[in-house]
Design a protein around this nucleic acid. Structure first.
Lengths: 347, 347
DNA sequence: TTGAAAGCGCTAACAC
DNA sequence: GTGTTAGCGCTTTCAA
């Protein structure tokens, strides 16, 4: 069955397509006068024909396609699916739809996502950028086209792109200092991929904290890994077998999932947490407080982040002034049992 | 800055739009002859102008918009974000993009999502339907329009819609029988919302298992809840305070998140798992094997489910015959420590 | 209060 | 090999 068009309605009503269009768009309320009869008749016929406006056609002529693109590395990561959820809710509220696209932490895929969204003429884009600075020219390309976009979770200092970020340098610095305050000196960091956005800042925070506390950085304690539980688990298992853990007194994971894997591997090796070794994560996933040893972590307020990104994007789309082009959502340390030494120093 | 159009290129090259279109679509390889010079020239100008095809315009004239819609209740649930990830990967591979839309377990929102996707003229839709049978007419509407869609995770026996489902009746029956085999008789089920798709079948499986083992169903043991960890936790806490747990010897959660909440509440109340009480979940979330008491659950092969749904949808979009219109992906029991009674009966 | 007509950017006959 | 032209479904002047 074909879709009914505005033409079909016009024909059946004996009116012109212009009139049908006006009725269907409720132009009556906007000053354009339409007779009640006509309006009623057209509405009735539209219902009979089960008419649905063709948004593709409408977009071709009109301005705003009312679609927003979201580019993220991986929807399976807790942080991103929460962001996606809250963003989706906000968009729903004002009648925008969402195209979700994955970069898989891969700059080429990210660039393809950007081009696709431009080709689909979305109203705006929110990007949690994948890697280093490789795609700065692609981003500049979006800006040159005048299509609004927001960087989420990361910003490029020199470039002045709009952004909502969480200050992970600061967040990880506070976390690491907490570990030091709890008495740890040999602090391992299972840091993910060193070229990936989420890791770069966290490593910087880690190093800053150690330096400020006069603890020499030991590169053997900075470990590459993936971002899943399995990655934390397998990395630590391997290191345990190599005997690396003899003098390590704390381990931080690049995110909570990795931290849980770390915890599991340590416990399997007979280490008690926090008595023998401290463990901390980052991001405060939904389930992180629910483990048997509740996990110390840093809360990134996802709903807030999504809300701010959405609000900023809407302003850009509507051509309004954005007062604060680089929002910084503060993170906060969440101390739980996994780093609480009984009788140890206070936080 | 405006987007460059095919016209701009034609003008600059002194050629017609038709020729430009042909070059840009690589029609040369399809038998339509184009001089190499012209092709080269046009490609060069297109690059200079940073031309991006307007997919909106292309969709208006052509057939397939190469967009697939996915409607799910909630991307934060592990099952759905894994499905979404794998689906997205498959779609990427053959050049389709994804519109993600939430139903929030709400049939009205689901209906709006459907209409939106129809209006946007997507090539196909995959739906994990929210509730009971409320939207059957909306689904029939999609079918009447001839746009391909697949029901995911659920099917309506009478309606003959294409579907990929996991046989949760069977899955939960096997799980419950396992609990019985481990010696449990008073088996509580924290079941989610009784009208919601995921719960209906699981309750049926639970009841079947009890009946087949000659255990009378006690409605006091069938508990309503939400679908998050917090829901499992708070429900069980309340029940513990009411003394309900005195004779309960196993608790099943409607999913793993809920089961983790249940475990936490029980342990806080001093119950040992599995010595004092068995706990099981459903779906086999990524982290379910990583808890201190690894969780017994039922594996739903998400990648497989997503892959089958994708393959079926692509066939429908291409107008090919679908041999098996109702795929059933088998689930399998995953027994872990949370239900393994030491010295108890075998599985 | 309504209609005719142009045009959004592109594709696909149909000509030459 | 290439150009002309007619739409795809809709919105929006401009006229009446």
């Amino acid at each position: 069955m074909k879709y009914a068009t505005i033409q079909d309605i016009a024909l059946k009503a004996g009116k012109s397509v212009a009139t049908v269009s006006r009725v269907l768009n409720g132009k009556a309320r906007k000053g354009i006068p339409i007779s009640d009869e006509t309006a009623e008749q057209i509405l009735r016929i539209a219902a009979e024909l089960d008419y649905r406006p063709n948004l593709v056609a409408r977009n071709l002529v009109g301005r705003d396609s009312r679609v927003v693109g979201l580019i993220i590395p991986d929807i399976m990561q807790s942080f991103f699916n929460e962001i996606c959820y809250h963003l989706s809710r906000e968009l729903d509220r004002d009648g925008y739809d969402l195209i979700l696209s994955h970069s898989y932490e891969n700059p080429d895929a990210e660039r393809r996502s950007i081009e696709m969204l431009l080709s689909r003429r979305v109203s705006g884009i929110i990007i949690a950028p994948a890697m280093g600075h490789k795609n700065i020219d692609a981003l500049s390309g979006i800006r040159k086209r005048g299509i609004p976009f927001i960087l989420l979770d990361r910003y490029y200092p020199g470039e002045n792109f709009h952004s909502v970020s969480t200050g992970d340098v600061e967040g990880f610095r506070v976390l690491t200092e907490h570990l030091v305050a709890q008495g740890a000196r040999r602090i391992m960091f299972v840091a993910g991929n060193r070229e990936t956005s989420v890791s770069i800042e966290r490593i910087e925070g880690y190093r800053k904290a150690l330096a400020s506390r006069g603890i020499g950085a030991d590169d053997d304690l900075l470990i590459e890994s993936g971002y899943f539980m399995e990655d934390g688990y397998s990395v630590v298992r391997t290191l345990i077998e190599r005997g690396v853990f003899r003098d390590v007194d704390a381990v931080a994971g690049v995110n909570d999932a990795v931290a849980i894997g770390i915890m599991t591997a340590l416990e399997e090796a007979g280490k008690r947490i926090p008595e023998d070794i401290l463990v901390a994560g980052y991001a405060n996933d939904r389930y992180s407080g629910y483990f048997r040893v509740p996990l110390t972590t840093v809360e990134q307020p996802k709903r807030d982040i999504a809300g701010k990104a959405h609000a900023m994007l809407m302003k850009l789309i509507k051509g309004e002034e954005v007062a604060v082009p680089h929002e910084r959502v503060p993170c906060s340390l969440v101390v739980r049992d996994s780093t609480l030494v009984k009788g140890g120093a206070p936080v």
